[in-house]
Computed example of a mutant assay.
Amino acid sequence: MQVKSFFTERLKQARKKMKISQKDLGINIGIDPSSASGRMNHYETGRHMPDIDTLKKMAKELNVPVNYFFCESEESATLACLIDKLDDEGKCKLIQSLESNKD
């Protein structure tokens, strides 16, 4: 049973942005070369969901935070990536700014 989700779309989007094939992504995260393409295809089509360790490896290889894969909108995905690039001080400043603008 294949299930399209935000995850499948984000994974494919991030992989294509990095200009990397399914096979190469799989190999780069430690999947055996003989099954790398097939496994990555199963993830992108929603046939299977990766475990958290594999998900973290994919995120690192694709230069996105793990939560990026589950963002519902392009804006949320962009924010997730931008926030991830901030240092702790920058994140604290952003939190303070957002909290002061709640009302």
Rank of each mutant, 00 (worst) to 15 (best):
M1Y: 12
K4F: 06
F6H: 11
F6T: 07
F6K: 11
L11Q: 03
K12A: 14
K12N: 12
Q13A: 10
K19F: 08
S21C: 02
Q22V: 05
Q22N: 07
D24V: 08
I27A: 06
I29D: 02
D32M: 10
S34A: 14
S34V: 08
N41S: 15
Y43F: 15
T45N: 15
G46E: 04
R47H: 08
R47I: 13
H48V: 15
M49E: 15
M49P: 00
P50I: 02
P50F: 02
D51Q: 10
I52H: 13
I52K: 11
D53H: 08
T54G: 02
L55Y: 01
M58Q: 07
A59F: 05
K60I: 10
E61D: 06
L62C: 03
L62Q: 03
L62S: 04
N63W: 00
N63M: 12
P65N: 11
P65H: 11
V66H: 04
N67S: 10
N67P: 05
F70Y: 13
E72C: 00
E72M: 03
S73L: 01
S73N: 03
E75K: 13
A80E: 02
A80Q: 02
I83T: 12
D84L: 07
D84K: 10
D87P: 02
D87T: 02
E89V: 12
G90K: 07
K93C: 05
I95H: 00
Q96S: 13
S97A: 01
E99N: 06
S100K: 11
S100R: 10
N101S: 13
D103Y: 11
